[in-house]
Design a protein around this nucleic acid. Structure first.
Lengths: 158, 158
DNA sequence: GTCGCTGCAAAGTCTTTGCAGAGAG
DNA sequence: CTCTCTGCAAAGACTTTGCAGCGAC
């Protein structure tokens, strides 16, 4: 497989590490490193956004029109990444899920119910409390997600 | 509409209040108080659980077989209740949503990824932190939801 | 070469909608 | 009476799956 899409000069260290992790994950499970999988990871990384499978697919089609990547592959890659905790999904009141990279850089979300925009934040105090609540109840935390819904500053000003 | 299903002697004050709120809500929007809507609210109240539209529908069919309540009506009633904040929905990694009564009795959720069981908890410290984080970012909170995923005590012991 | 991967289209889920008759107000 | 509701079935939205050829290793 060529490195056309991953010229190291144009990629951050962070992305290189992500890509290595992904390759390691694939190897570990005897899965293959395909250009579609690479492109999916890369597009998700570049977008810095919370994407639905559909919007990710559209982005990929725009960036790599020659690949004709199918949406089924995007779904399959996202499932794979989610199962290995390389991406996290957020569910909303509405239908569908949004995906983002990096369960490791943990953060929570402020979601604007007007414009749908998502702001991230982390709060150590909350993280610590969560751990102790779980402990009290004999529960072992694997993951968590917190969403605060409301109106963001720009929408209030409108 | 008869009161067959809501004999006050058999119902808690809490349920009576809920029902009044519901009736008020309907009246306010020129909607009708139908037996299907009542049964849906009542079944949700009695179950004390987090139900999917499908499981709620099944429960209703078992409790009130003569009504032949359609699942479409359950969906419609749940949307109505959710829009008016009388019920809250939780989304999961998997498909579908679960509904529960009472946004007013706010609480968060510990969700077991083994058995799907949901334990509720409330923590004032977290609630307070959420408010101050939102304030810092110029965000007005309307609602929030927090889910902690992991393995519950019974599942660990198995 | 082998065996997993891909795109496509078909099949599955879950949810919403159109409609004609039923029923609340 | 009027106008909303309901059940049904059909349509929609989103996601998964089967398959035959393709491509990574």
């Amino acid at each position: 497989m060529s490195n056309v899409l991953t010229d190291f000069k144009e990629r951050t260290i962070e992305y290189q590490e992500l890509l290595s992790d992904f390759k390691a994950l694939l190897k570990k499970n005897s899965l293959k490193f395909t250009i579609q999988r690479e492109v999916t990871l890369e597009t998700l990384y570049d977008s810095n956004e919370h994407l639905t499978p559909e919007s990710l697919h559209k982005l990929i089609q725009v960036k790599f029109p020659d690949l004709k990547t199918g949406i089924a592959t995007v779904y399959r890659t996202l499932s794979l990444l989610e199962d290995s905790s390389m991406v996290t999904s957020l569910s909303f009141g509405a239908q569908g899920k949004k995906y983002e990279l990096g369960a490791k850089n943990h953060h929570d979300h402020l979601i604007c119910i007007e414009c749908g925009d998502i702001t991230e934040f982390v709060d150590d105090e909350i993280e610590v409390r969560q751990e102790s609540i779980a402990k009290e109840l004999g529960f072992t935390i694997e993951d968590h997600s917190m969403q605060i819904y409301g109106i963001c500053k720009p929408c209030k000003e409108k």
